[in-house]
């Protein structure tokens, strides 16, 4: 390589590195914004109880019109489980890996071009990815684990409708995906009181300390005003951490609820999840705040809920 080609190569690399396209939501992405009114007579919330996690997911999806209602041929799918902690699946701190695996397989069956998975973890990311067994599950299903531990993976976006959170650095995979499936596990949470659909999205932003420093509940609610919302929310409530959450001290913190919830509405699904956690309705402030921002409905009496017991 002569000097000239070397210089042009280096400058090309440098340019690629610094070049960041400003993110602008495409029209079809905006349409994906979680529908407060369910289309085509489908239920707003599907609640399933009594089966294995995989059985319950299948039943819930069937009731909601099948995954092909949400995932189309050739689309890029992001599945966002909770992988926050260096804990084994039995400890109930992360989403059940079998559920993650099954969902990814279903996405590919529905025609997904690629399925990506990541979380901005609390413990060391490699330990979380591997000990949660989610990394292995994703690989077995043919999906891709993305890294999320460096600031450079994130792009700053505006949240003009946010009250306390006006800007957030969001993982690029969130912005670049056609379909987003939010797949949290339901847990007690010392700070936010509960972690389910809305709280799980703290794992797609870079600076979680900013939430805590500013106003935790308001920031969680504000993030739901983002243009591109999860296409679908599925809550793993099979083995539920009832105290000492979100990390948990021992398996004595877990209660077997054998439930799974599914909804396109983050606020609605979290309202239902709070009941499973036996929380008082007004205890989880971010639910009411998100409802006030009109990003979902917190009044379960206004929603069509399909309850399935296996």
């Amino acid at each position: 390589m002569d000097r000239r080609s070397f210089i042009s190569l280096v400058s090309a690399l440098a340019a690629t590195y610094n070049f960041k396209l400003p993110y602008r939501a495409r029209a079809e992405e905006l349409n994906l914004a979680s529908g407060t009114a369910a289309a085509g007579g489908f239920p707003d919330i599907v609640a399933v109880m009594g089966g294995t996690p995989v059985e319950m997911l299948d039943r819930a999806l069937t009731a909601a019109g099948g995954l092909s209602r949400f995932v189309k041929q050739g689309q890029k799918v992001l599945v966002k489980p909770n992988i926050g902690w260096d804990k084994t699946p039995e400890e109930g701190a992360n989403t059940n890996p079998t559920l993650v695996k099954h969902l990814i397989q279903l996405c590919f069956k529905a025609g997904a071009k690629e399925v990506n998975v990541f979380d901005n973890t609390c413990n060391h990311w490699q330990a979380c990815y591997s000990n949660s067994q989610i990394e292995a599950a994703v690989k077995e299903a043919g999906g891709t684990m993305l890294m999320a531990h460096e600031e450079s993976y994130y792009t700053e976006i505006d949240l003009p409708h946010g009250v306390a959170l006006k800007k957030a650095k969001v993982h690029k995979a969130w912005l670049e995906s056609d379909v987003i499936i939010n797949l949290p596990i339901l847990k007690h949470h010392g700070g936010a009181r509960m972690t389910a659909a809305m709280k799980n999205l703290m794992g797609v932003i870079w600076d979680r300390r900013h939430y805590h420093r500013t106003d935790l509940h308001q920031c969680i609610a504000d993030f739901t005003t983002i243009d591109k919302k999860p296409t679908l929310n599925i809550i793993d409530a099979y083995s539920v951490m009832m105290r000492n959450g979100p990390r948990g001290v021992s398996t004595a913190d877990l209660a077997t609820k054998k439930m799974l919830l599914l909804s396109t509405d983050m606020v609605a699904i979290d309202t239902a999840a709070a009941r499973i956690l036996e929380a008082q309705p007004d205890e989880i402030a971010y639910i009411a705040m998100a409802a006030a921002l009109n990003t979902g409905i917190a009044d379960l009496s206004k929603l069509k809920i399909e309850r399935i017991t296996i």
Partner: peptide
Amino acid sequence: TDGKDCGACAEHCPTQAVRMVPYHNNLM
């Protein structure tokens, strides 16, 4: 100082040597 919920410390504590307890105004 701000009268807002936070709990980041207790959330990360592996043994719950730091845990959240009820405080005034429905805070922990």
